[in-house]
Design a protein around this nucleic acid. Structure first.
Lengths: 192, 192
DNA sequence: ACTTTTAATGAACACATGTTCAATAAGTTT
DNA sequence: AAACTTATTGAACATGTGTTCATTAAAAGT
């Protein structure tokens, strides 16, 4: 039950064409017709697999999200301090975003649909859930964890938005220092 | 140097037509041609004022952002506790979002461009800047405030995202209670 | 009221969108 | 290798997009 080679070929052609076009123009200005011409794919074939140009990009993005997930899994220099654990986890995200800066510049662009942001949000959110649940959950039984986790997750994404707005000029070391200071002020896990 | 009445009439017709169409279909599926037909405006005239359907919506949204700004200004029952001040400020935002729920449902939709999110982000961010700067700024001179403020702002928007995902079923009272608990855990301004 | 300014119109244009359908060719099974 | 399955193709169609331009008409200035 393997995938038909023709489908793979078609999708690859479209992905290559998109990457090529993205070097010179923004994703919003790329038409389906233009993409298909470059990929040498019939426009009708396009609609057999995708609804719009964004879906081609999104499929490519899945690879990047996978890298984010992987980079998060791999161990870092962990200490005994909870806060340091968190910043150590987040520094991995910063490294990842820097690595794929070209793509995150697109994801955070104001013309781009929220869907990419939510993709990132959901990915980071699963990390955040794993980080939090252990110590905190049991203590406050009136707390709806979903709100806490979304609060925490989006706070981190707020740093990424600010980073993006400052055109990624802040170094990762500096960014991590800032995050450490912010979390130190807030001291999220001092209860433990 | 007043605005030409014809322009006002054209823009009003388009706004009314958009509001009418939004009742039955999503903004993404509304074409310029369809909007102009309903508004009885020549399509060419549309392009004299707007680039796409979103710009019509965005102009309407400015009214809502203005309401957000106003509702934030008006005094609430303030106490001496900093945390309570913050949650009192934020409850105003919750009320505002609930009031314009129909619009925030569009703003947080995954197919909608980030631009609306940023509009909200920037508005809340100015509130946040005003709330924070007083006590905190001077103490930590190595802290880049921009990152702190974006972190704080987006954390709040994280709650709104979660609220949206839970289809605004959580009551404002409950939401405020959650926020109070979250901030109590983090205790952002215990230094003061 | 008359003149000036400028917004709105309709027609036309090349190109993009989204869909259909029979014909073809490429891949998979046997 | 032959028989099958199905992805791709090209053509066609109605509609949408973004722009232009001369004409019309409405508002503003005098």
């Amino acid at each position: 039950m393997k995938k038909d080679l023709r489908i793979i070929k078609t999708k690859e052609s479209l992905r290559h064409a998109l990457i090529s076009l993205l070097k010179t123009k923004s994703i919003e200005t790329i038409s389906i017709a233009e993409l298909c011409r470059l990929a040498q794919i019939n426009r009708g074939t396009f609609y057999l697999h995708y609804k719009d140009v964004h879906e081609v990009f999104k499929e490519y993005l899945d690879v990047i999200v996978e890298d984010l997930r992987k980079s998060y899994e791999e161990p870092y220099y962990k200490t005994n301090y909870k806060i340091k654990d968190i910043t150590a986890d987040m520094i991995k995200i910063f490294h990842h975003v820097k690595k794929y800066q070209d793509f995150y510049q697109i994801i955070f662009d104001e013309r781009i649909p929220m869907m990419y942001y939510y993709l990132l949000f959901d990915t980071v959110r699963t990390f955040m859930r794993d980080s939090i649940e252990e110590g905190l959950l049991a203590a406050q039984h009136e707390l709806k964890v979903d709100y806490l986790i979304s609060y925490q997750t989006n706070a981190i994404l707020g740093i990424l938005i600010e980073w993006h707005r400052q055109e990624y000029k802040t170094s990762i070391t500096e960014l991590n220092k800032q995050l450490f200071m912010i979390i130190s002020i807030h001291d999220p896990f001092r209860m433990q």
